[in-house]
Write a protein that binds this DNA or RNA. Structure first.
Lengths: 346, 346
DNA sequence: TTGTCTTACGAAAACGATTAAGTAACACAG
DNA sequence: CTGTGTTACTTAATCGTTTTCGTAAGACAA
């Protein structure tokens, strides 16, 4: 590998001059600069990041922390999309993305923070994880710039998908279609799901729709089997719902299977809606009504905010950015006409 | 940050002793070692990777190169799964994963190789990309250890999903179900798709099934719209196929929509099969017949081979590992009984 | 002439680790 | 007593940069 020393010899100048020329310092003559740069290019010089990082304490590396154990790491649709746009934005700004982990290797086990320090990340993005994990809070409370996605820590930057707004829009649509018996199978308790649940109730009230307790159930994220079972139970109620909302699109597919297995049609007999807007949802029959989260913007905003925090530690005032989603009106929610509703009531 | 110097002061020994104690060299007394380690722990010492890398030329970092521009980077199901298991395996061995990119940032543009050198990757994994790209071949021909996934460069380690075997098994199943008019919408030309296509023809011959040219068409990977259109065209042929194979499960869904839109039933009227084994396939109705690629093993093998190449540059003889997939017999391929076939022929 | 500025560059000390080579202390054989 | 080995350290060089503090040369004013 050709180093600055090689260039300095080739040019007959000192390494200091080479360094300054390549970094465009003002105290080097213009022609010297040009010459040094040209020679560097010719010799195929490549800066040594380790050496630079050792001096400057900047690695231009960003750590990304995802949940690992739930097996859904990168195959988690929502998260993979967010990460993808995060990555693109970060790379455009000259930062590379490395995954943080705490798996034990030959040298024992490192906490997230230890690992981050070891790698010398300039900043860290956290998402899709148990935010109460002590290792996570340790990382957040360290002096490493942090941005969280879909969770707020006091005094830290957070990028939030507008779950309350999304659910409000979805419920508004469902109610607007005339549904009055709406069930909600929500995801396992988390900051995200509680927001959606609260918004669900609030919007129901807004539209004067009553929600019996037995209409509200729980099935973990992306758990098709559980949502299948819960759906069957809902349909066996004395007064079954006319519409069922699911924690995500996968779960919705599970529910749709349950509905069909019971000989009912979607949306004629039962309406369903998912959440997330996975690519395949558009191609299901009927097309799935869902809320598409703007993963592109979430990822971009996260990267932008984190990098601005890294590069201008003080000036960053914005602490939370909420990114709206939008309703995808598929055809899995039917319009209940007045007489139909009367019929059902009769 | 506490460094070895701090520890050496606290312990009244030299930094060399600290270094050796922490790295378990044999020429340090056992009690000294223990003491130094304990103090290091108490002081919250964290090794500085940059400094270490500067000396040792090892970063314990692996670069991963994916296609970026096609927008399907991390949201590519097959690849996200492979990456996920690759990551887990690598982390278990003490390596971290960073994405390689060549996007132009403030400092101009780096090639993949330049970027890899800059980051000092110990090794590189390449997948899901245009393998003819000169930047990619430049990277492969460098002195950096490389493993490729689903593509073979001479004298380099490659991990291959058994596309020929998978297609053979799938075709064997379809033919075994009595199908004799089988169409294949294959993906855009690539090393992967040509292997499948060859295997498709070979297996057809093996079963004495003739494939008219008009039965073989092309639709890009995951392109639901194109496979929708191609499917419609296939069904409008004078002698339409009884079974259609698709390049992937997404495309299959597109095809299924076309079939249904034409008022036909799956699998009673037309059978379909996908490829990949996406999670949702199990929950489609009918359940999609497909070939599940063993992404777990592919990722693990890639990481294992790459790391062994990194750590024992000479000893690695194995150059290609083929990972078999397995048929998922859904219910989207019907069994054609003899008389039905006779009927159709009549 | 002397003093002060500017410009353009160099010397050298870091940064935090690793490691080859050296050395002091002691044991033990001859 | 001398020579040879161990054992347990220390010294010092080194990796490739960055950056602070020179300093020499020339310009220009007083």
């Amino acid at each position: 590998m050709v180093s600055m020393k090689d260039i300095s010899k080739a040019c007959g100048v000192s390494v200091a001059t080479v360094s300054k020329a390549l970094n465009d310092h003002s105290d080097i003559g213009e022609e010297t600069k040009q010459h040094i740069r040209q020679v560097a290019r010719q010799m195929g010089y490549s800066p040594n990041l380790s050496a630079r990082a050792l001096k400057t304490n900047k690695t231009h590396g960003i750590g990304v922390l995802f949940v690992d154990d739930a097996r859904s790491g990168l195959t988690h649709d929502y998260f993979a999309s967010v990460l993808d746009s995060f990555k693109r934005m970060a790379e455009k700004c000259g930062y590379d993305i490395t995954f943080i982990n705490s798996s034990k290797n030959r040298k024992g086990r490192m906490t997230y923070l230890e690992h981050s320090r070891y790698r010398g990340f300039d900043g860290v993005a956290i998402a899709c994880i148990d935010f109460d994990d002590p290792e996570v809070t340790e990382l957040v409370q360290s002096n490493i710039p942090v941005v969280t996605i879909d969770y707020i820590y006091d005094n830290h930057i957070a990028i939030l998908s507008d779950n309350a707004g999304g659910m409000h829009e979805l419920m508004g649509f469902v109610c607007g279609q005339g549904h009055e018996r709406i069930a909600y199978i929500h995801g396992a308790a988390s900051n995200v799901t509680t927001k959606r649940l609260a918004s669900f109730y609030r919007t129901a009230e807004e539209y004067g729709v009553e929600i019996p307790d037995e209409y509200v159930r729980e099935a973990p994220y992306r758990n098709t089997e559980k949502s299948y079972r819960e759906t069957k139970e809902l349909l066996q109620l004395k007064e079954p719902p006319t519409c069922i909302l699911y924690p995500d699109d996968y779960a919705a597919v599970g529910g749709m299977n349950a509905i069909r297995d019971m000989g009912l049609r979607i949306p004629e007999d039962i309406s369903v809606a998912g959440y997330d807007g996975i690519p395949l949802g558009k191609y299901l029959q009927p097309q799935l009504t869902t809320v598409q989260q703007d993963t592109e913007q979430i990822g971009v905003a996260a990267a932008r905010e984190l990098i601005s925090l890294i590069e201008r530690p003080k000036s960053t005032l914005v602490e939370q950015v909420t990114i709206p989603g939008h309703l995808v009106e598929g055809s899995s929610v039917s319009h209940l006409k007045q007489k139909e509703r009367d019929q059902k009531r009769a």
